[in-house]
Design a protein around this nucleic acid. Structure first.
Length: 524
RNA sequence: GGAGCGUUCGUCUAACGGUUAGGACCUCAGGUUUUCAUCCUGGUAAUACGGGUUCGAUUCCCGUACGCUCUACCA
């Protein structure tokens, strides 16, 4: 295996390398960022920070027809929420600005021209209709998707099939054209992927990809190579779906004379649907009832809203944590990692090759773990918006933190605090009397009336003392504590949940406790 | 169809030729908690298949099967 040998067992890939680590996340701003995208960012970020390098955000907006307003800002906000702040980006700028490819449009054409002059690319004048005709014409059951390749290009209208005068005439008449790469007929293109080892392709299987579109914009293929070179990217991480077009990129690096500067490639495994097979999509979330996007995203065209992990009540720490273990582990049994730990422990050679099915149950477990171990003051800040939305009024921040501390082990998602902690701030509006009524009688009613008086007389806020009063009174009424505690709990919190009843009574205070019992008594 | 990539419990994964194939989620059975949750103990459950190489393969090689990705003037 290429990872072993002279570099040692799990020695970093870096040992063979001496240039500064610079990585980029290069999304297309076409919508919300989903799990797979955020994980790609995460691996980029961790790798950069682990090696003291730079993390760059570059917006690949070369397809004007797919431009979606707000998508770029959404991406920035998402990175921000996750705590992965780019060192260079369209918002903070940097030494290689601009970081939007649409703003770099003019710089790509010269490289296309260089390639044409060197015989590695050519002009193609085929219209979309002609391309469609070609595909229909050559389509067979054996070959359902004919490619514009070395075998077909001679039959098409391009600067390889047409004679020079004709080409010159077409160009001077401003005929729309694209520039295509001229793939070699039969050549083995091999490169080393950091995750997969040696990968090779025969160029006969790769088509003549469009490099420069008719509108003058580069396609991804040209833009990614040019910008990675110009921005001195040392390591390029992307999803596995890019693997088949990697030979195009490798050849471009070579043809442009930048072979020695080519980044190390790492094609990341995909995040798959929980059920069945295939890449996880937004639709799966809708269908199975869990978020796929990092944050809420509303499509400005369709007004379709997709829920995000953030709004569903995930902590960013948990989100990062659940993402990183989808395809990576540190070799031990540890599963909970902070960002700081990840930066220290991350290594690309422990990233899996195979795709991982997303498991929402486990995702929730990560969040519950993070909530349980989170600082109360920190949680208070996160819970506050949910309380605001639910109309729960918090007057005393210290009280809120205390309540969070005693209820957080019961919460899986942030909104769970509304039910698990809301009753500390106001009397429950819904009281599960149905769970009391069947065994309710006059004697119990008398008990609770007596209890209210006893509590008021004691005016205690000590749980133990309240419990003693309660128990002493059960005896005088000929009742057992066990058959009265559940009714009392329901009177105080509304249902069968929450911490110890006397803890609750002491915390909300005697007057509230008595008021809630008296109110419940009117409902029974 | 073609090319590439992949394949350990239901799911995420450990195991770098020698382990009773380990952990976690889920689930099940107990215990703690006069509620719920937490917590604790334990159980069920996996190397896709077939050939090699080797004293010995989850591990290395080949083949098969299955899956995924790509096969746009989208990324």
């Amino acid at each position: 295996m290429f990872l072993r040998g002279t570099c040692g067992k799990y020695k970093s890939y870096l040992c063979a390398m001496n240039k500064r680590v610079r990585v980029r996340f290069a999304p297309s701003p076409t919508g919300g960022l989903h799990l797979g995208g955020v994980r790609t960012v995460l691996f980029n970020y961790l790798f950069a920070k682990k090696h003291g390098g730079d993390f760059i955000l570059r917006i690949e907006d070369t397809d004007q027809s797919r431009f979606v307003p707000g998508a770029e800002d959404y991406i920035v906000q998402t990175l921000n929420w996750c705590g992965m702040i780019p060192d260079e980006s369209p918002v903070v700028g940097g030494p290689f600005a601009p970081y939007r490819q649409s703003e770099r449009k003019e710089s790509y054409k010269q490289y296309a021209t260089t390639l044409i002059n060197a015989g590695h690319a050519y002009y193609a004048f085929d219209t979309p209709t002609e391309l469609e005709e070609m595909r229909n014409h050559f389509k067979t059951s054996e070959n359902p998707s004919p490619q514009y390749n070395h075998a077909i290009r001679a039959k098409m209208r391009n600067s390889l099939s047409l004679d020079a005068a004709e080409v010159a005439a077409l160009l001077s008449a401003n005929t729309p054209y694209v520039v295509r790469i001229k793939m070699p007929d039969h050549e083995e293109v091999t490169f080393t992927d950091m995750i997969r080892g040696e990968v090779s392709f025969n160029t006969s299987q790769v088509d003549d990809k469009v490099l420069l579109k008719a509108d003058g914009m580069p396609t991804y293929h040209l833009a990614v190579v040019v910008d990675d070179y110009l921005m001195k990217i040392s390591h390029a991480f992307r999803g596995e779906e890019w693997l088949p077009s990697a030979p195009v990129h490798v050849l471009l690096w070579k043809y442009l004379g930048w072979q020695n500067e080519m980044p190390e490639w790492a094609h990341l495994p995909l995040i798959l649907k929980p059920d069945g097979h295939g890449k996880l999509s937004k639709r799966d979330g809708d269908r199975l009832g869990f978020p796929v996007f990092a944050m809420d995203w509303t499509d400005p065209k369709t007004n379709e809203k997709a829920i995000g992990f953030k709004e569903r009540g995930f902590l960013p720490e948990a989100f990062v944590n659940l993402l990183v273990v989808l395809g990576w582990n540190d070799g031990t049994d540890q599963e909970i990692f902070s960002m700081a730990e990840l930066i220290e422990k991350f290594s690309i050679d422990r990233v899996h090759k195979g795709g991982a099915k997303f498991d929402y149950e486990k995702a929730k477990w990560f969040n519950a773990e993070w909530i349980k171990n989170a600082d109360n003051a920190y949680l208070a800040g996160l819970v506050q918006p949910y309380f605001d939305a639910a109309g729960i009024v918090v007057n005393d921040p210290a009280y809120l933190q205390k309540i969070i501390g005693i209820t957080k082990e019961r919460c899986i998602l942030l909104p769970d605090f509304i039910t698990q902690a809301g009753f500390y701030f106001s009397a429950p509006t819904q009281i599960d009397t149905a769970s009391i009524a069947p065994k309710w009688d006059e004697n119990k009613k008398n008990f609770f009336e007596a209890l209210c008086m006893a509590f008021e007389n004691s005016n205690s806020n000590d749980p133990l003392e309240l419990e003693n009063i309660f128990k002493a009174l059960t005896a005088t009424h000929g009742l057992k504590a066990g058959e009265l505690m559940l009714p009392m709990r329901i009177m105080l919190v509304g249902g069968k949940f929450g911490p110890g009843v006397f803890e609750i009574a002491a915390t909300i205070g005697i007057s509230d406790t008595v008021a809630r019992i008296k109110h419940a008594l009117t409902l029974l």
